[in-house]
Amino acid sequence: MTVTVKFFARLREDMNIENMSLDIPVPTDARSVWAAATGRKMPEYDIFCAINQAHAHLDHMVNDGDEVAFFPQITGG
């Protein structure tokens, strides 16, 4: 299956990836998408995830065509 992967803020800079299209076997969760997209361990600071623009846990399953986003602590307002 194919998913779109996005990185934001500090994470985008640290991983040096903004967005990508990723072919990955099913079934898979967001944590596996991270591993396939970056090939790296997660950084020591907290990482959050969204699937199809809704907050999700890293163990949430991902489906074909999904948009998976990774980002650090939200700091707006």
Binding site: R10, Q73, T75
Partner: peptide, 20 residues
Amino acid sequence: DAPFWKKEQLNNGTRWVSNN
């Protein structure tokens, strides 16, 4: 809940804000 992130410009460089 809203996905915003702040990056400060300081005298000696930039810094991502790490807490909300």
